[in-house]
């Protein structure tokens, strides 16, 4: 039998999906705000949306953080009109690198390392991923190294500030169950 148009398929969104969607929507708004903030050097941004990724990581687990982060990159790309431009791919490379870094920090003992550590590691991974892609593809020259210290300083500051904000937000409000449920 061939499928006809009368076949109705239902996609049931679990509460978990709703939480991810809510966080992703919040992250997209922050990414748009982020893009509006003037910056001294292209590529240096506060990365406010990463606060939401940290919230997702701490409250829903690493897989949810991956979802929120990738949905935010795609959604912000659509809204800002930068989809599939070099800037979009740089953000994607940075995002994937920071998610890898966040996955690494998940193994660290919670007693000693909090969201600030995760945020700092993610920030440095972000510039690392961006610079690798930029060096390999956009600007195949070692002159790009000249800007690396500026990027590192920006990562240090924004990673620290975003981590503290995420920590503050997590402190008071248990916005989700502490046990991460597996995503479908």
């Amino acid at each position: 039998m061939t499928a006809s148009t009368s076949d109705t398929r239902w996609l049931h969104a679990q509460p978990h999906d709703h939480r991810i969607a809510r966080l992703a929507a919040l992250a997209i708004v922050l990414a748009v705000v982020d893009a509006g903030i003037p910056s001294p050097l292209p590529g240096i941004k506060p990365g406010l949306a990463n606060i939401v990724t940290l919230l997702a990581l701490e409250s829903l687990g690493w897989r949810a953080a991956v979802w929120v982060s990738l949905l935010r990159i795609l959604g912000a790309g659509l809204l800002l009109g930068s989809l599939l431009t070099p800037g979009f791919f740089l953000g994607l490379a940075g995002g994937i690198a920071s998610l890898a870094g966040l996955g690494l920090t998940q193994g660290w003992p919670k007693r000693w390392f909090g969201p600030v550590s995760a945020s700092l590691v993610a920030a440095f991974c972000h510039i690392g991923g961006q610079l690798l892609l930029a060096r390999a593809w956009l600007i195949p020259s070692d002159n790009i190294l000249y800007f690396v210290p500026a990027f590192a300083l920006a990562a240090l500051l924004s990673g620290l500030v975003n981590g503290i904000i995420a920590d503050k937000l997590l402190e008071g409000s248990p916005c989700a169950p502490s046990t991460p449920s597996p995503s479908p």
């Binding site: 660290w108 003992p109 007693r111 000693w112 390392f113 909090g114 600030v116 550590s117 700092l120 590691v121 240090l156 620290l160 981590g163 503290i164 920590d167 503050k168 402190e171």
Partner: peptide, 11 residues
């Protein structure tokens, strides 16, 4: 606590 000991190390 807001910033844990390991966080200072990472910083």
């Amino acid at each position: 606590r807001l910033i844990r000991p390991g966080d200072w190390l990472v910083l």
